[in-house]
Amino acid sequence: MSAHAPSDARWREVQRLRSARPRSRALRWSVVALALLAAYAWLAGDVALADFLTARRLANLRAFVADEVWPHDLAGRAGDLGAYARWALARWREVGASATLATLWISVAAIVLAGAIAWLVAPLAARNVTAAAPFGEPPRHDAARRAPLFVTLRWTARGLAILMRAVPEYVLAFLLLAVLGSDTAWPAVLALALHNGGILGRLTGETLENLEPAPLRALAGLGARRRGVLLFAAVPMALGRFLLYFFYRFETCVREATVLGMLGVVSLGYWIQDARTRQFYDEMVFLVGLGVLLVLLADLTSAVARRWLRRS
């Protein structure tokens, strides 16, 4: 910046703008705190870097990549792709196809159910809907008396949504399995539906709160009741946003549905865990690969749907 001597008026203006830029102390301290936390995590000695690349582990890794992930009957012919394809096709017919389909159905059922849960939670959690005077409608004579009721209702809904999304799907499924048993897909479906319902409920609730208030207020001013404004104005206005979030969560749902099988529900994860305990790592890696293909397919579907939604 030698072209701009400090005496240069332009340079002083740059300095002035720089010192007037918006700054937030909370943000600055948060960044410092998180950086310190990261440093602590690496230096506390709980993450044993030195133990990671020992000679024994490297030998394990070499054996795993060069030998164990390749089918047993391909011994010595690891590069024979035709033989691998035949082996893969046999595995696909054996368990792969049905497990992949089961994973897909579990995730679709779960995300649709999560969407339904979200629409139950969202209006209850939204400040402009669950209020004594909804949508800025002129307050009734007993509004002050009824206000605490709505505040309680709103915070109950919010609290439930927080609980649902704070507990990871895997833990929910683990707990539900003990109650419902493993011969039904419900533990996986319910776990995914509850967790994602909590997330979608919060996002949809925020969408409802951030809607353009004027049209809603106009309807309320004309005498429309809460129910009417919600169903015929607020929900249609929020629907596009909701669907964007819905498809974004669908991707995650497919990923998680694969993994929940490891607890005992029959999805891809069940067979991955099965191959793992038998130490058939060739099958394990093949099934993980099927999971990857399914997730990539779901990614693509949801990307196409979201693009379509943005355009419409």
Binding site: F52, R57, N60, L61, V65, E68, T258, M284, G291
Partner: peptide, 18 residues
Amino acid sequence: AVHELLWAVLLLAAMGLN
């Protein structure tokens, strides 16, 4: 696309518990 638990399973199989 590979879930963190599946990465864990793969790493456990390839490297052992660490």
